[in-house]
């Protein structure tokens, strides 16, 4: 018995000698991770089962928030539908344009580098600043750039860009695709440049056309990069907030634009939590959003893997 105990102690001491320093060095990160990620997550999960209003102590309400969300909340359904349309359009257009740009500017010449830098600029610019500029572009006042430009082409009546419900989602898609395609382009350029040139040489010798080379070599070998770009842009698109909050806000307590035409899930969550004092309900929305993103990302990864195995 004593021998077993001695042996265990020796192993523990040896483990500590080898690993103690590493774990101590990890402690600051682990502390921050627990404090700023695990704790808020656990707290928000707990709050999603309460009626917390932000000021009074929370009371447990069981699954009531989730029942209300799926059975009664028309605004949530509207936000979900808007978000679905927005995500589909943004991810498809964004990925295609990113790939197009990468194919156009993949080289190492001076002009290609300049073009890549220009297209990448929105990714390193403050989102708030960009959104304020978009708001100015679509402003119905005399200084609104979009209306000024259409006036140059003889359109005398100003378009009420942000007050026309049918234009809200397309405007949001335009802003997102413009802002995100530079980032996707850089990733695709890295992917394109990692494909060995020999494959193309062999294909050319075999008489493959440019389109055939693209379809049979480029696209299959870009699959991991494409999956990465699609999954990250999908997650980012689901989490759209600033564009709706800044561009479509008309006064202190109104989010989502005219008739909620630009309402998305995260701005709705914010609206419910911070202007309707329903932080418990807002937490439930946040967890539903998490599940949606998790499931879609999982499906996406599975599809990517299935294609690889074909």
């Amino acid at each position: 018995m004593a021998t077993v105990s001695m042996g265990r102690m020796r192993r523990t001491r040896s483990w500590l000698r080898r690993n103690a320093v590493s774990y101590v060095m990890l402690l600051p990160f682990a502390g921050l991770f627990a404090g700023f990620l695990i704790w808020p997550l656990a707290n928000s999960l707990y709050l999603s089962f309460t009626d917390f209003d932000g000021v009074s102590p929370p009371k447990l309400t069981g699954l009531e928030n989730f029942r209300r969300l799926f059975a009664e909340d028309d605004r949530f359904r509207h936000a979900l539908s808007n978000t679905g349309t927005y995500v589909a359009a943004t991810v498809v257009l964004g990925t295609l344009l990113s790939l197009g740009l990468a194919l156009a500017f993949r080289g190492s010449s001076w002009s290609h580098r300049v073009m890549r830098t220009i297209f990448f600029l929105p990714s390193v610019t403050s989102t708030i600043a960009i959104m304020l500029i978009w708001k100015w572009i679509f402003d119905p006042n005399d200084f609104g750039l979009a209306n000024t430009v259409i006036r140059w082409f003889g359109h005398s009546t100003a378009i009420e860009w942000l007050a026309t419900p049918g234009l809200s989602v397309p405007i949001l898609v335009l802003m997102a695709v413009w802002g995100g395609m530079g980032y996707g382009m850089v990733i695709f350029v890295a992917g394109l440049n990692s494909i060995p040139e020999e494959y193309y040489e062999a294909a050319r010798i075999d008489g493959a056309s440019t389109w055939q080379q693209f379809r049979r070599i480029t696209l299959p070998l870009l699959r991991p990069v494409t999956t990465y770009v699609v999954v990250t842009s999908l997650i980012a698109a689901f989490q759209i907030f600033e564009a709706v909050y800044i561009v479509f806000r008309t006064n202190a307590n109104t989010i989502g634009g005219v008739l909620d035409s630009g309402l998305m899930i995260v701005p709705y969550l914010y609206d419910i939590g911070f202007t309707h004092f329903q932080l418990g309900y807002a937490s439930a929305i946040a967890w539903v959003l998490f599940v949606i993103i998790f499931v879609i990302s999982l499906v996406n990864l599975r599809i990517g893997r299935a294609f690889k195995e074909l």
Binding site: I38, W39, A42, N43, Y46, L47, G54, P57, P58
Partner: peptide, 26 residues
């Protein structure tokens, strides 16, 4: 050792959730 870590993690999580429940004292 693993069991000890698991116990500490559980206690930590319970403390965290307990703290969450204590939100907004007056």
């Amino acid at each position: 050792m693993r069991r000890t870590f698991a116990s500490i993690a559980c206690i930590g999580l319970m403390t965290v959730l307990g703290a969450g429940c204590a939100t907004s004292g007056t």
